[in-house]
């Protein structure tokens, strides 16, 4: 009987501990994501996307900046996102809210391809 009571007591302690800790952990996680991974940058330079593949957490805003003297576009192969023509120094941003691998290319220069991997 004592053992059982002890076990219940222990379980209660553990539950209480989780109840106390979990909100803190969640808070810490949210804070950590907010500081390190809510945005990512892709440079368009020399007719290429750099880095060509970027891995980001869900909720990240990815911003492309065209540093070439020639206009480019950022177009998802699955029609998830599509920029207008980006002239020199123009930017395009997209918020990735769902996990998955998003392939994209420049519709003007289709040899230019890239990937955003959202986890």
């Amino acid at each position: 009987m004592d053992r059982i009571l002890n076990r219940i007591g222990l379980a209660a302690l553990v539950i209480t501990a989780f109840a106390l800790l979990t909100p803190v952990d969640r808070h810490a996680n949210a804070a950590g994501q907010g500081q390190t991974a809510t945005s990512a940058a892709v440079k368009i330079d020399n007719f290429s996307f750099g880095p060509a593949a970027v891995t980001v957490p869900v909720g990240t805003t990815v911003t492309w900046t065209n540093q070439d003297d020639i206009p480019h576009t950022v177009v998802s192969t699955d029609n998830v996102f599509k920029s207008k023509a980006l002239d020199t120094d123009d930017k395009f941003s997209f918020v990735f809210t769902k996990p998955g691998t998003y392939s994209y290319f420049c519709s003007i220069h289709p040899k230019m391809t890239g990937q955003i991997i959202v986890q």
């Binding site: 994209y104 290319f105 003007i108 289709p110 040899k111 391809t113």
Partner: peptide
Amino acid sequence: GLVNVVNLKAGGL
């Protein structure tokens, strides 16, 4: 006169 610049595919020419 031919048109070879529309509906270009990713990775293609």
